[in-house]
Simulated scan of single mutants.
Amino acid sequence: MKYKPHDYQKFAVDFIETHPEAAVLLECGLGKTSITLTALNDLMFDKFEVRKVLIIAPIRVCKNSWAAEIAKWDHLEGLNYSLVLGSREQRLAALRQKADLYIINRENVQWLIESSGMPFDFDMVVIDELSSFKNHQSKRFKALRKVRPFVKRIVGLTGTPCSNGLMDLWAQFRLLDKGERLGKRIGQYRDAYFTPDWNGFTYTPRKGAEKEIYGKIADI
């Protein structure tokens, strides 16, 4: 099928291509996958800026959405992918295959980085459902943070960046920009934009915090 993107999709494709760190915050059904694949195709085969891409997604999305979108659009016929799913042996075999895109479920991110024994030589990472990395104490966040300095380009996709409040944003953008905009440590972020409640365990955004936070991250 011929890809005929809407204006907002063209804008998003260009944004990914011109921003090494990008957050694409679009609601479900607005074409985040096709947008990203179009940008990846351009970056790999037109601009030659990207060589090997890791795509992290929920397992059903790995199996269904990404492979289906690649097969659907004519302009993506040159993209080769490998699904890094299944048993340990199956995942290792998938990582050894020669491909442009390696698609893995988020539950196996820590395994890939810390236990697979395979080199983490991806020069671009796509996190489909960026909000699944909102917990700065999770193992997947900590593992990905370790290798983030070696990744040249990163894209986060989600329609729900802060479903539980503004505190959710810190970990997501810490992965995207390595702490440049919201601080390298969660404590910096809390102190700058939140007031602790009486028990010291919950935090309330101070007046004007939302506008300041979104202003800080607006450029990416």
Rank of each mutant, 00 (worst) to 15 (best):
I104Q: 03
D42N: 15
R174I: 05
L166M: 02
P149I: 10
H19G: 04
L25N: 12
E49C: 12
W73M: 11
W111K: 00
K211Y: 09
S34R: 13
L26M: 14
F194H: 04
K134G: 08
K47D: 11
K98D: 14
S34H: 09
G31C: 07
R91C: 05
D42C: 10
G29M: 07
T18G: 09
A192F: 05
S116Q: 04
W73G: 10
V155P: 02
V13E: 02
T33R: 03
R148C: 07
F133N: 00
Q172H: 02
C162Y: 13
K146I: 12
G78E: 14
A39C: 06
R153H: 10
E49P: 07
G187Y: 11
G208A: 07
A71T: 09
D128T: 05
L144K: 02
D128W: 01
F194D: 04
D177K: 00
L157Y: 03
L54V: 12
K47Y: 13
F48C: 02
I213W: 00
R153Y: 08
Y214V: 06
A22S: 13
E114W: 04
K216E: 14
M124F: 03
T36M: 12
R206L: 02
D46S: 13
I113Y: 00
F15K: 12
D123F: 03
T33Y: 04
K63M: 13
N41C: 09
L30W: 07
N64R: 14
G31V: 08
K52W: 07
Q188M: 13
P196C: 04
E77D: 09
C162N: 15
Q110I: 08
D46F: 11
P149W: 08
S138T: 09
E17W: 07
N108I: 06
D100T: 05
V84S: 00
T36E: 06
E89V: 12
A57R: 00
L92C: 13
Y102E: 11
Q90E: 15
N80I: 15
H75F: 14
Q172R: 03
P205I: 05
L26C: 09
A143Y: 01
R106K: 15
K211A: 15
M44G: 05
D7N: 14
N199S: 13
L85E: 07
Y102I: 12
